[in-house]
Nucleic acid binder design. Structure first.
Lengths: 355, 355
DNA sequence: CTTGCCTCCGAAAGCGCTTTCGGAATATCT
DNA sequence: AGATATTCCGAAAGCGCTTTCGGAGGCAAG
C-alpha cells in the first residue's frame, strides 16, 4: 500500500497547484466547473481525503465537540449515556465531526479541565449534563463565549441553550395523581439540591403538596444519594417514623428501586400498602417487584436534538433560540394505588406481624 | 483576555527562538539546564500550553484513541458503556490524550468507517467491543497493523490483544450448578451466534450438558435477540413446549429479565418452579422479581485496563502480550433453586426420568 | 484596436508546532 | 598553544492543508 494520498500528490497528478486543488475540492467559486469536476473525480478515484488534523489547524475549526460525562454515581441509571452518545455521534458524523468524551473528577477539577479543553482548540463546542444549581462550568463557558448546550438547566437558564424535561411539572403531576388516589402523606426522596434537577423536582413536590391543601412536612422529605441504596435507606427512614407516608415519590427510578426494596423488607406490599412513583421511565422498571410506576421522560432523540442545536449554535445561532422543554408522562405500572385503609389495626402492628 | 499564548510569543518574551523553546519544553538533552528551567518556568507563569492540533500535525501522533460503541440493542444493559468510557477516559487523560467515541450503522458500514478512521490520522489506536465470530474489523486492523485492542474475543484470538471474561467457563459453571440442584432439562436462551460471545456461551452450555451425562436437546436451545422482549419470547416458547425445561440459562441478564416475566406470566414462580440464571451481574438484578441469580463478570476496572493495554501497544508493545482473561462468578440471588418436584399433578407435563 | 472587466488559476504566506542540522562559543586534551 | 570535543542554541525546513492576493488570458464594450 502506497503512502497516504496527499494534496501535494493529487495536485502533481493533475498538473495543478495545491491551492487550486484545495479550492476545487472545497467548491470555491473561482474555479471553473470543468477543473472542479476533474479534480473532484480524481480525488475520489485516488481515494483522497484531506488530513483532518491539517485542515483543522489551517482553518482553526476543531471539527469536534466534547460531551462532559456526569460522574457515574450509580452503576444503574446510566444507560441513557450510551443512548445520548449514540444520538450525538450520529449528528456529528453526518458532518464529519468527532465526538470527544471526557470525565471529570471533582467539581473544581472539572472547571479547570473544561477551561483547558476550550482553550486548547480541540473542540468547537461542548455539551454539559446534569448541571448544578449554580454551575461554575456554565458561567465559564458563557464568559468565554464558547458554544455549548446543556442537558438540563441550572437555576438561571435564560441566557444559554438547553434541552430539558420539565421535571418540576412532572412532580406536580405525580403528586396530583397520588392525591387523587387518596394519599395525604406523601414522602419525597430526593437528591442533593446542588443538582438543579433535584431542586426543581423538590419544588414541584412542595408546590403541588401545598396546592392540594396539604401541609409540606419536612419530616416527609429525605435527601439522599442517587443510588438504589440511597433510596432504600431514605425510604426506610420514612417508613419507620410515626405517621409514615402512604406514598413515596422518588427523584429517580434508581432510588425508587431501593424504596421498593425497603417497603418489601418491612413486609409491606408496594403499590398496595405504600405507593411508589419514580422518575425517568427506565425500561428496567418493567421488571421490578412490582413493576415501577414512573414519570417517563422522552429520551428517544435527546442526543440528536442536543447535537443539532449545538451545531446550530456553533454556526452562529443565538443560544437563546435553542431552549427545548419536553414533558414527562405518568407511566402507570404497578407500584401505585389507592391509599391503603387499614381495616384491622394500625399499620405498624400489621407490619410487625408480618415480619 | 489576550490572545492565546503561542510558542512564538513565548519565545519572543524569552529572547529565544521557537525551536529552542520547544526543545526546552520537551526536555531535549541539548538544552542547558539553566535555560530549560527558565523556559519552563516562564511557560507555566504565562500559562502556555502547546496547541494540540499543531503538535499532532507536526509529530504525526494523533494523541487520541477511539472507542467503537456497540450498537445499542437493548436500552437496558448498557450501563457498562458509561463505566468503560469513564475508565478509558481516565487512563487517556493522564497522558493528555483524547477519547473519541464512534457509533456505526451496519457491519459493512462499520468496516468502512473504521478504515476511514484509522487512515485519517485522527487516532492512534482503537478499542473494539463485542466482536463477531469472524470480525472484519479485526482483520482490517491487523492488516493495517494499526494498534487496537478488543473487548471480547473473536473465534481466532491468538494474534491480537483482548480483554475478555471467560464466559464459556461461566456457562459451564452455571450448568454444573443447575445440575447439582437436580435439573436435568436446562433450557438455553442465546443470542445470534455471529456474536462470538454468544457462540462461546452456547459452547459452554453444550459442553457442560454433555459432561454431565445429559443430552443436548436442540429443542431446549432458543436463539433470540438481546433484549428483555427477546428473552420473554424465547422463554415462552421453551416453557410452552412439552417436556419443558426446569431451568433457563440466559446469555445476558437483560434476556433473563424477560425470562422471569414469561415464567410469572404462566403462573409459575421463578426460582421455585423454574430456575433462571442470567449473565452479566448487572446491579439491576437485585431488584427483579425475584432477584436474579447471575454469572457476574468483574467489570470494575475493565476500562482502565483496556486503556492501559492499548497505550502499551501503541508504545510498541507486542499485542499478544496483552491478552487478559477474567472469570465470572456465580452470584446467587433468588431465581435459582432445586428442581421442582411436582407432588400434586397440576404440572402434569414436567418430565419423566429423575436425576 | 484599445480599454476594461471577468474568469480562473498560480504563488505564497500562513496555522502553531517539531526536529534536524550546522555552527558559534566554550571546554578538554596533548 | 593548537587541535579536538562538547555544549548549546539559531536557522530553517517541514507537517498537510487553507486562503488571500495578484495577475495572465479571454471576453465584451467603446
Amino acid at each position: 500500500m502506497t503512502q497516504r494520498m496527499s494534496l501535494k500528490k493529487l495536485a502533481a497528478h493533475l498538473g495543478l497547484t495545491e491551492g487550486t486543488v484545495s479550492r476545487a475540492l472545497n467548491n470555491y467559486p473561482d474555479i471553473s466547473a470543468k477543473t472542479r469536476d476533474r479534480v473532484q473525480q480524481a480525488a475520489t478515484e485516488l481515494g483522497y481525503r484531506a488530513n483532518p488534523l491539517a485542515r483543522r489547524l489551517a482553518t482553526g475549526v476543531a471539527e469536534a465537540v466534547a460531551y462532559i460525562m456526569p460522574e457515574t454515581h450509580s452503576t444503574i441509571s446510566e444507560p441513557f449515556v450510551s443512548q445520548l452518545l449514540a444520538g450525538l455521534g450520529e449528528t456529528l458524523s453526518e458532518r464529519g465531526w468527532d465526538l470527544l468524551v471526557t470525565q471529570s473528577g471533582s467539581a473544581e477539577q472539572e472547571a479547570d479541565m473544561l477551561h483547558k479543553l476550550i482553550t486548547s482548540g480541540r473542540v468547537s463546542g461542548v455539551v454539559l449534563s446534569r448541571p448544578l444549581k449554580n454551575d461554575a462550568r456554565i458561567k465559564l463557558l458563557q464568559k468565554a463565549k464558547f458554544p455549548f448546550i446543556v442537558h438540563g438547566r441550572s437555576v438561571e437558564y435564560k441566557d444559554y441553550a438547553w434541552y430539558d424535561v420539565d421535571s418540576k411539572a412532572a412532580f406536580v403531576a405525580a403528586v396530583d395523581h397520588l392525591v387523587a388516589l387518596g394519599h395525604a402523606r406523601i414522602g419525597f426522596i430526593g437528591a442533593p439540591t446542588y443538582y438543579n434537577f433535584a431542586q426543581m423536582r423538590l419544588d414541584g413536590y412542595k408546590e403541588a403538596i401545598a396546592n392540594n391543601g396539604l401541609e409540606v412536612d419536612p419530616d416527609l422529605i429525605q435527601i439522599t444519594e442517587l443510588s438504589d441504596d440511597g433510596g432504600e435507606l431514605a425510604a426506610g427512614d420514612l417508613l419507620d417514623c410515626t405517621r409514615a407516608p402512604t406514598a413515596l415519590l422518588c427523584v429517580t427510578d434508581t432510588q425508587a428501586l431501593g424504596a421498593l426494596a425497603a417497603i418489601r423488607a418491612r413486609g409491606l406490599v408496594p403499590g398496595k400498602h405504600v405507593s411508589v412513583i419514580g422518575y425517568d421511565g427506565l425500561r428496567f422498571g418493567r421488571h421490578t417487584n412490582p413493576p415501577l410506576t414512573t414519570m417517563a421522560q422522552p429520551q428517544a432523540h435527546s442526543g440528536r436534538q442536543l447535537g443539532d442545536m449545538l451545531l446550530a449554535i456553533i454556526d452562529g445561532g443565538d443560544p437563546t433560540d435553542f431552549q427545548v422543554l419536553r414533558s414527562a408522562e405518568l407511566l402507570r405500572r404497578k407500584s401505585d394505588g389507592p391509599v391503603w385503609v387499614d381495616t384491622s389495626e394500625t399499620m405498624s402492628k400489621t407490619r410487625e406481624e408480618q415480619t
